[in-house]
């Protein structure tokens, strides 16, 4: 049913990934293997969940740079609370707390964006600074290196593990199931529910959405709360997998995540973006971050590569569109 659009961002990113794999395999035959794949999947979990959140915001016509601060705020306060109260909560409950904190923080964005109708970039820059500052000043700035037992227990849960023919160990943690769950849930939301279509609609034309009776504010509130919740989830997964809650973590990652989403075809002007594209963008960014050396490019060049990919991947289509527009008068 879905036709492949050979000019789409998705397809272009896919080609770059294939080229990457071929070149990497040529220079290091062991690259094309299960351990590499599982490394990639594991490294993509947190960025992937973030990126899905960013995708939703971009589709709705906004931008969010505060999600990393939300994530670290949620993971740290959750871990700290659970530890200090000495509760032995099972990990699902710990996760739930973190997600709820994330949602609550997302609602702060929603108040300023949906309530005051302020520009989303500026608002989320403000909350990024305020949340991180608040966390490090009032909650704590000390690393928690022994996280609650239930989180440690979660980090040991794996879906598959084994050793391949070359003797390399591989495993896929259960955390990956969360990424899958988020993808499926968000896909369902975006394509199968009217709420999801409302998000596309307000990103496509805010004014039209108001006119046909879409509750724009409520939709925006939902988007920022959802993204906050995803950030809370990504944060607590990150802390559990690393078995450490570091209040200085994650912040600084936001531009890479936005880069992944934009590479996958989501437009900053709103209304466009797919989950497939986003995931492809994430795969590409994770590969560049982890395996650039295999292409013979030193890993210090990774942000040059990502930056160049963004400029080329979004600049060329934009140039073509501009020329076509001039020709059309």
């Amino acid at each position: 049913m879905p036709k492949i659009n050979y000019k789409s961002n998705e397809f272009l990113v896919f080609l770059v990934i294939v080229a990457f794999v071929i070149v990497a395999t040529a220079s290091y035959p062991g690259f094309f293997s299960i351990p590499t794949l599982f490394d990639l999947l594991r490294n993509g979990i947190v960025i992937g969940i973030f990126a899905i959140g960013v995708l939703l915001v971009l589709i709705s016509g906004g931008i969010d740079v505060s999600f990393t601060a939300v994530a670290v705020f949620a993971l740290f306060t959750t871990t700290l609370t659970v530890k200090q109260l000495g509760l032995d909560l099972p990990w699902p409950l710990v996760f739930l707390v973190s997600v709820l904190i994330g949602m609550g923080l997302g609602l702060i964005n929603a108040v300023f964006i949906a309530g005051f109708r302020l520009p989303t970039l500026i608002v989320t820059l403000g909350t990024l600074s305020a949340l991180r500052g608040f966390l490090l000043t009032f909650v704590g700035s000390q690393l928690i290196s022994n996280v609650p037992p239930s989180m440690q227990q979660f980090s040991r849960l794996v879906i598959v593990r084994g050793t391949n023919a070359q003797g390399f160990f591989y495993s896929l943690p259960w955390a990956f199931a969360f990424l899958v769950g988020v993808v499926v849930l968000t896909w369902f939301l975006l394509t199968r529910t009217l709420l999801g279509r409302n998000i596309f609609a307000i990103g496509g034309s805010l004014e039209s959405a108001r006119r046909i009776g879409i509750n724009v504010r409520l939709t925006q509130v939902f988007v920022y709360a959802y993204v906050g919740g995803l950030a809370g989830l990504a944060g607590i997964i990150h802390a559990s997998m690393a078995r450490v809650a570091n209040p200085f973590d994650l912040v600084g990652l936001e531009l890479s995540v936005i880069a992944a989403t934009v590479l996958g075809g989501a437009r900053l002007s709103g209304g466009y973006g797919t989950i497939t594209g986003t995931l492809l963008g994430v795969i590409l960014i994770v590969m560049v971050n982890n395996s650039l050396i295999l292409l013979g490019i030193p890993s210090t060049w990774q942000s040059v590569v990502i930056g160049a990919l963004i400029l080329l991947g979004t600049g060329l289509p934009s140039y073509q569109a501009k020329r076509a527009a001039r020709k059309a008068g």
Binding site: W301, I306, G307, A308, I310, L311, G315
Partner: peptide, 12 residues
């Protein structure tokens, strides 16, 4: 978008 990309390139 342009300066997000170029900023990564310059820093990189």
């Amino acid at each position: 978008l342009a300066t997000l990309g170029s900023g990564l390139v310059f820093t990189g």
